[in-house]
Design a protein around this nucleic acid. Structure first.
Length: 349
DNA sequence: TCTGGGGTCCTAGGACCC
DNA sequence: TCTGGGGTCCTAGGACCC
């Protein structure tokens, strides 16, 4: 947006409508799941489908893709593209090449030939850095990688070498996995202007810790470790993390820890972004390994009450004193998931 | 190309344990 | 107190993806 506004100073800037995208996404996934339960979301608007067992009922893969795309167009008025292949990442590339609003099928047994002329950057796991390394080795196409000795590639790229070699030959053993448990949950915000006042930074990570805590409770998870993230004015990234004595889903507990981490992190520059994330997530049913039963956390009933209030009246209905009136407490995603229908501003801190 | 927010996976050193 | 080999866990950083 910064770039766009610079180029077109008079442009009208329209805020994103995350709720609308989520609603459309749910509609698309409902259509996809009418064909097979083996739907693996890749993002809000992309998914892998394993239709191996669906063909007897729904016809061949190409026909299934056409049918799904027609339904998406008819019911949701959205364009959709599809890639069909024997392995996941080839299907993904085929769908990228079919955009917009097309579909591309890689013939059975033809994966390696399909990939060979494509640039190395098309491979999953090859970003700008790895692309530079590969170009330095004289490798520009996926076919060129396929011709290499995997051991030679390993010497130059580490363990990524043999993996890229396999992919270049169309070997991709990854299965379509419908439900995947989150491995981390985080919240981060870039400031309007860089700042270095402790109070402002603490307010920011407080709001983020509370958002993370709420999302943990929504997912029925607790965190065993917490990470503080700071991006400085020169874009250098700092992370500080701690492992907890006991897993928690309490935002205030997360905040106490990241505030401590912030306190012992000397900052040489103003801060551009702060972030808080929860890692090593465990479910609520995790067996208790402590020798003595731990005391029931005091925060649990409080959080349940706060969650209920926010579900009913919106995410800004009740918050901590330092966040009152600040827009940092709002989290559209939480509001959407909880189904809150209206927003009530606090009348006084 | 002056860089948002949500993630995943990997590496590497050091502390610590047997 | 030192030595050696095998291992886990914790922490920080980086590449990559949508």
């Amino acid at each position: 947006m910064a770039q766009a506004v610079r180029l077109a100073p008079k442009a009208t800037v329209v805020p994103p409508r995350f709720e609308a995208y989520a609603e459309a996404s749910a509609g698309v996934f409902a259509i996809l799941e009418s064909v097979t339960p083996l739907v693996e979301p890749l993002s809000l608007d992309e998914a892998f489908l394993d239709v191996t067992a669906s063909r007897a009922l729904h016809g061949d893969a190409g026909g299934i893709a056409r049918k799904l795309r027609t339904q998406i167009a008819d019911r949701l008025h959205l364009a959709a593209s599809a890639g069909i292949a024997e392995v996941k990442f080839a299907a993904k590339i085929a769908s990228d090449l079919a955009k917009p609003n097309g579909q591309l099928e890689v013939p059975v047994g033809g994966t390696r030939a399909f990939l060979a002329p494509l640039p190395v950057s098309r491979l999953w796991g090859v970003g700008p850095k790895t692309e530079g390394v590969l170009h330095g080795l004289g490798l520009r196409t996926i076919g060129a990688i396929a011709e290499c000795e995997p051991a030679w590639l390993e010497g130059r790229l580490g363990s990524a070498g043999p993996t890229l070699w396999e992919l270049s030959r169309g070997i991709d053993p990854r299965l379509v996995i419908p439900e995947r448990q989150a491995k981390s949950i985080g919240a981060e915000d870039t400031f309007e202007r860089d700042r270095d006042d402790t109070e402002g930074l603490e307010t920011s990570i407080h709001a983020q810790a509370l958002r993370v805590g709420q999302r943990l409770r929504l997912a029925g998870l607790r965190a065993r470790s917490v990470q503080l993230k700071l991006k400085l004015s020169d874009f250098t990234l700092l992370t500080r993390s701690t492992t907890l004595d006991r897993p928690t889903d309490d935002g205030q507990a997360l905040y106490r820890i990241v505030r401590e981490l912030l306190g012992r992190t000397p900052l040489e520059r103003p801060v551009r972004l702060t972030g808080v994330s929860a890692h090593d997530l465990v479910g609520p049913e995790e067996p208790q390994l402590a020798l003595f039963a731990p005391p029931k956390p005091r925060a649990t009933p409080l959080n349940a009450a706060l969650d209920a209030i926010q579900k009913k009246f919106g995410s800004t209905a009740v918050t901590t004193a330092d966040l009152a009136g600040s827009d940092l407490a709002a989290d559209d995603e939480i509001r959407r998931k909880m189904g809150a229908s209206r927003l009530i501003k606090p009348r006084s801190p």
